[in-house]
């Protein structure tokens, strides 16, 4: 299998299209014939990253790369950056507004869910610049 890469632009506050990138990513993995367990992990991680970009960022992108050993998701945005990454990684912590919470978002589970679904998770955030997340899911025999 050659390396495959897809880029998805994510707009701030675009709740109408929110989830479409994750759905496309899931379809791609399905077409590649990966097993349902790894597809679920990638789909959840991609969805949470996509929703974070819609809710919290000034827009950004989700990139997926698939090589024979792993699936990698890059979520990069154009700010505003996270003040306290350690706090943001805590289950239940959220800075989402009441309006967003009423829609069922802002449970403070996004980043923890992403980490749980990844074999390797890294996050870097610079205030006013952006947040940069890399998630790797390693393919095992049978995936």
């Amino acid at each position: 299998m050659d390396n495959i890469r897809y880029d998805f632009e994510i707009e701030k506050d675009d709740f109408e299209r929110a989830g479409e990138a994750s759905s496309s990513i899931k379809k791609i993995l399905r077409q590649l014939g990966l097993n349902s367990g790894i597809i679920r992990r990638v789909a959840i991680a991609a969805y949470e990253a996509e929703m974070n970009l819609v809710i919290h960022s000034n827009g950004g992108s989700i990139v997926i790369e698939i090589d024979p050993r792993k699936v990698t998701i890059f979520a990069n945005d154009k700010g505003p950056g996270i003040k306290d990454v350690k706090l943001a990684m805590k289950e239940g912590y959220s800075t989402a507004s009441d309006r967003i919470r009423e829609m069922g978002f802002g449970a403070g589970m996004g980043l923890p869910n992403m980490k749980k679904c990844s074999d390797d998770f890294s996050i870097k955030s610079i205030l006013k610049e952006g947040t940069f997340i890399v998630m790797k899911m390693f393919l095992k025999d049978g995936d």
């Binding site: 989830g19 759905s23 969805y47 069922g104």
Partner: peptide, 16 residues
């Protein structure tokens, strides 16, 4: 079963 009814629930249901 939920009381959420905005369109993003379909994305969640479809992904899962």
């Amino acid at each position: 079963i939920t009381i959420q009814s905005h369109s993003n629930i379909v994305a969640v249901a479809s992904l899962l």
